[in-house]
């Protein structure tokens, strides 16, 4: 079960503070990285919501992210809508597509669920890759950022945009945490733990899973809209299944089913890629080896390990041993 423990709250505050301090001390390139981390953190949170807490391991979150980006681009460039309406469109588009995928795939499990999501994701990729309306393989340029000048914010300034994305990432975390603490989230964890029993207790499991997947897709769609505005350009590459794979790596590295880990994983992967790229252009190999090592060691991921050590520290105190039976994660 999910609990917003003091450790989690502390970690989130620390990460948020670090992001703000970094935003005001770094240059253009650092701000670009920060923006990327904040955006990917939102998708990783969305993925952890279904994979870590719902047991639905998805290989289509890259596609949901991409659908959000294309939805924003189409709404603003093709339809001439405003940025706000475009963002709403991205959330709705990602959510609707994800709900559909969830509804169709909810009855499959294990590797079949993974394959089903992979297939749907690649279907979207193939569609945008071949579609002349959306620019085909060239994608769509000329995307403008949301205009918040009324509120005194200039999102065309890279610091302003980085902070904007950071705030949205924080809101995404708050939303996910609230959802996981609610009856909806508790039940989702129940489904992961024992789906047939949840059904026997009277829950329409299929509807619940589809709703969870849809919510996750809406968050991924929001991130897609931010990514489209970040680079001011969308391309089918956003939807490719390897993007989904990288998102899964972030969640695993940070700690599956910890929520904070998703944010941490996004940060670590983006910065590792960037740092490794300074020495060699073979970051793929480094990331691949790290991933293999993490999984082989039966790893809990970075934040999972922190929570584990923290829990052990707590258990050593002369308190009743009952704390041992209520781990904070999962």
């Amino acid at each position: 079960m999910f609990h917003q423990t003091p450790l989690k709250t502390g970690a989130v505050l620390l990460l948020a503070t670090a992001a703000v301090v970094y935003a005001f001390t770094t240059g253009f390139f650092g701000l670009e990285l920060l923006t990327e981390v904040a955006i990917l953190a939102i998708v990783a949170i969305a993925l952890d919501l279904v994979a870590g807490y719902g047991g639905m391991v998805s290989l289509c979150h890259g596609a949901l992210y991409g659908v959000g980006a294309y939805a924003f681009a189409s709404a603003t460039v093709l339809l001439g809508w405003g940025g706000g309406a475009g963002m709403a469109m991205a959330v709705a588009g990602g959510g609707a597509f994800a709900w559909l995928i969830g509804a169709v795939s909810a009855r499959t499990h294990g590797i079949f669920f993974i394959m089903a999501t992979l297939a749907f994701g690649q279907m979207a990729y193939a569609y945008f890759f071949d579609s002349p309306l959306f620019g085909g393989s060239d994608g769509m340029p000329g995307i403008a950022r949301l205009d918040l000048s009324g509120a005194g914010l200039d999102l065309n300034d890279s610091r302003g945009y980085a902070l904007f994305c950071t705030v949205l990432a924080l809101l995404a975390y708050a939303l996910a945490a609230t959802l996981l603490r609610s009856g909806f989230g508790r039940t989702l964890v129940g489904i992961r733990a024992n789906e047939p029993r949840m059904r026997a207790l009277g829950l329409p499991v299929w509807r619940h899973k589809a709703a969870a997947f849809g919510t996750s897709g809406a968050l991924a769609g929001l991130a897609g809209a931010l990514a489209a505005q970040h680079t001011m350009y969308v391309s089918p590459g956003l939807l490719h299944w390897t993007v989904s794979g990288e998102l899964l790596i972030m969640v695993i590295l940070g700690g599956l089913g910890t929520l904070v880990g998703a944010v941490l994983g996004a940060g670590v992967l983006v910065f590792v890629k960037h740092e490794v790229a300074r020495f060699t252009d073979h970051w793929h190999m480094v990331v691949g080896l790290v991933l293999i090592a993490t999984v082989l060691s039966g790893g809990r991921g970075i934040f999972g390990q922190i929570e584990f050590l923290w829990g052990r520290r707590g258990a050593r105190r002369p308190e009743p041993a009952a704390t041992e039976g209520s781990p904070d994660h999962a």
Partner: peptide
């Protein structure tokens, strides 16, 4: 190790082979 871990490890292998 379960399908998710298998998918992850072999996905990591793809990256390693690529480089």
């Amino acid at each position: 190790a379960g399908p998710m871990n298998q998918v992850l490890v072999t996905f990591g292998l793809i990256f390693v082979f690529l480089d």
